[in-house]
Amino acid sequence: MLVALDAQAQAPGKERAAAIEVDSVSKRYRLGEETLAALEDISLVVGEGEFVSLIGPSGCGKSTLLNVVAGLVPATLGRVRVLGNDMTGPSRRIGMMFQSPVLLPWRTNLDNVLLPVEVFGLDRRKSATRARELLQLVGLAAFADRYPMELSGGMQQRVAICRMLLCDPAILLMDEPFAALDEMSREFMNVELLRIWEALRSTVLFVTHNIGEAVFLSDRVIVMSARPGRIARVVRVELPRPRTKATLSSDTFFHQVTAVRKAFDETADRIAS
């Protein structure tokens, strides 16, 4: 069988140390008289160096879960441990990326990449070399001293990748970073992201609503269901690494996507019935 479902897929596998531990986390919002359960009893473990995607219909709480892991939103119940420490707030060991690049238009691309260094109060000059290396890595070395508005959407997201990576975070949390891009750019960014990640092997939790993207990038795909947000299925992706553009047209990739789609549809059916 190409896809290992659930029971075996729950664990990070290969004796990895846990980087992210989410333990019975629930998140409820009060809406006047009613309470809205955004997340209901979520438990998951992401191993060190593992690439895990969260996928599900809109409103399933996948972004909320990411924000809870990031320490941006407190959990109502349960607890989150990152690198062995309880999360009490945002951590410098986490790098984040959002659906929009969120670059500051009054800063050059290089200065945008250097923002975390300034916020952390570290030596700007020492990091400038690293920032230029990163821009080189994503093919934007020539644009270091230009402004974000001179770049296309995909290029801006590559600057955002550099900013996320600058201080070598152990954990990357990415919230639909390529959802606003057209199909071609998204595919290109997926390949780029994996190329960069192969060299770093940081732990990634990646939110998306694109099944192909989730399969191509991940070691495991976590399928969530909506109202309340729950983990419905966990699918282990058995695609050899390093994965390249060629992977996208392989039969194996196609079968994996079909398997995840099936899991996805089953969840959707269960909600509908």
């Binding site: 951590s91 986490i94 984040m96 959002f98 500051l104 975390p116 916020v119």
Partner: peptide, 17 residues
């Protein structure tokens, strides 16, 4: 823009920062 504030929160930036 809320996204910019969220970015700064994710970096654990102080209010003055």
């Amino acid at each position: 823009e809320e996204a910019k504030l969220k970015l700064m929160r994710s970096l654990a930036a102080s209010r003055t920062m």
